[in-house]
Design a protein around this nucleic acid. Structure first.
Lengths: 343, 343
DNA sequence: AAGCATATTGCAATCGATTGCAATATAGCC
DNA sequence: GGCTATATTGCAATCGATTGCAATATGCTT
């Protein structure tokens, strides 16, 4: 009875080589103390010598656990924000690495093409033990269904404290307040808000914008809030538009993302508006490029590292019988050239 | 005999509801013509009514196919290029969507944390049917091992025509030639190359740089090739350095990526060097931000859409018994402000 | 040596879908 | 009706790892 050379080794082969049963080999590989230490060591050594890996599908079928987490990037169908925003690549990398460290595989898909029924596709068919949704879009029905189904999932988005499912995200309101307070401190009197408030995250940022203005005794003007998609192009076009309207007295812009801010900056520079002397600009995200555009962009930094780790921790806690709670992450204003006027 | 309400439905439940055996239900669900059309329709309707999904782990175990493709982002351990480069997010999205359309799930991991033995981890343990590696790094041993193992995989990188495994990537040499020829046409006489030629992709770009110079009767100077990591920061620092050295007579820069180019641009502008009048600049990638920095960046556009689809098509061909071949994708020069001098 | 408590191991069943092959049903022809 | 060819269906085995529980081994005490 030789090992079949062209076939992948199974636990059965390892057991035979070790002179034990498959059940003992299985327990030994998993370091189960029920098995004698010597036997454990022997089986583990043989497995290592043969670079043996347990058949993951067989294990999953038996244990009813896939040890896989699905990550879905939630598309705003109208724009391509989710897929082009460098911020997302950061957080995705952290999640992938953290899941690997915790012994999980990560499935990735976008809401653009994935099956409509996430519960059925991922949970009922045992593809994943849990779900991480990146983004909230405009109150997506699919996320609501997950909540109703009671399956384990967490969302990266705007934690408002009112959701019926765990949302983890930066303190958008606080970040916006910091940004606008900073612009006011630089002497700005009339500040526009570029961002689509139909998204909860952006809505929170707008609240923070209003908070800062009101704290300074300034009444927020509705006409200064300009719905802007999440692209540099949208920022560029919207700023062009604003410069042609009665908004010509603007001296500050708070953009809801760095991409929007960069587009806005381009439009300003094309009109020979000196940034920040004539018009100061702040973005949100602190993407890698923000430090390297000219002028460098003042922005609100989100801690993607902490965010990614927390998403994973909360989800695994939930999967392992614990709780998963919404949580707000602190933000930080990063001051750069685009807003720093001479004092 | 009622359906257990708290348990996920199995094929067995569907079969009972349809009044057929599990084997017939299975074949009917898969639309096997061996089963009578009426029976097929009946089973499929019942399954749809119950939003039934086959247990993927059971199916995988029986069929020996996971219908899952693993994508590994290959890190250059020294830099964070792979994970921060917006170009990669583009291609990742295309791969994810295309795999979903072909009925496959996509696993994502980074070479930073994933198991060292990809054959064993992904193939032997039946986690994936195939592998897509994004990036080649510096002749990674893990990729060589995959090749020796004869498992199905494809690589996004620099197709040189000499590899023993399928590599798909843009025509780097041609792209660089286009870029440098353009700079020469703008009147540049002395052009630096910013990029790390220890990476095959960048090496090919350097060859194209040399091709263009030689075609113009200019002898390439080794000192004008400056190894630069894939970050805007590295581009910035390296350009600062170059400006302090005997390279002060530079009038052109070809950067091996847009990120590097943007960092270089920042350094130039900080030294009040007018771009492109005094020094013209071209990057590579055409990331979303390239059109929106100031001045907008001339760059070589890689077709990430075609690339992603081709990676998937070639890999699935291989998995289904066909062949997977290396292929070069065409590139295109996108002329913008950073290199266009007045004529 | 016998009895008891504990350690160690192995048998057999299970997970849920799929598929080879035999059994049965159906249709058509003589 | 009998025979043949084809269509349809179901039984039983399989995939490979895990685990409950019974069987066996070991160690200690009397």
């Amino acid at each position: 009875m030789t090992i079949k050379p062209a076939k992948t080794m199974t636990l059965s082969d390892i057991a035979r080589l070790a002179g034990v049963s498959e059940s003992t080999a299985s327990r030994a590989l998993r370091d189960n103390p029920v098995i004698n230490a010597q036997t454990r060591q022997k089986v583990q050594q043989i497995a290592a010598d043969h670079q043996f890996k347990v058949n993951a599908t067989a294990r999953s079928l038996r244990t009813q656990k896939s040890h896989t987490i699905a990550v879905i990037i939630l598309f705003d169908a109208k724009t391509q924000q989710a897929i082009t925003d460098p911020f997302l690549l950061d957080i995705l990398g952290v999640i992938a690495d953290e899941l690997t460290r915790q012994g999980y595989d990560m499935l990735l898909s976008t809401s653009k093409t994935t099956d409509k029924d996430w519960r059925s596709y991922y949970f009922d068919s045992k593809r994943a033990d849990g779900l991480i949704v990146i983004g909230q879009g405009e109150h997506d029905e699919r996320v609501e269904q997950l909540s109703s189904a009671g399956v384990p999932f967490v969302v990266w988005g705007a934690a408002t404290g009112t959701e019926r499912f765990p949302v983890i995200g930066s303190d958008n309101r606080q970040g916006a307040q910091l940004a606008v307070t900073h612009l006011l401190a630089q002497g700005c009197k009339r500040i526009a808000f570029l961002g689509d408030i139909r998204h909860t995250e952006i809505e929170m940022r707008y609240l923070g914008y209003q908070d800062a203005l009101q704290a300074a005794g300034i009444k927020p003007e509705a006409k200064l809030q300009l719905n802007t998609d999440f692209t540099a192009q949208a920022g560029y076009l919207q700023t062009q538009q604003a410069l042609f309207n009665e908004l010509a007295t603007l001296d500050g812009i708070f953009a809801a993302s760095d991409a929007i801010a960069m587009g806005a900056m381009k439009a300003l520079l094309e009109h020979n508006i000196k940034v920040p002397q004539q018009l100061a600009l702040v973005g949100f995200d602190d993407i890698a490029m923000s430090a390297y555009c000219t002028p460098s962009l003042t922005t609100v930094k989100q801690d993607t590292h902490a965010g990614g780790k927390l998403l994973v921790a909360q989800l695994l806690s939930r999967i392992n019988g614990g709780k998963a709670a919404s949580q707000l992450l602190p933000v930080k204003l990063v001051e750069r050239q685009s807003s720093l006027r001479r004092n």
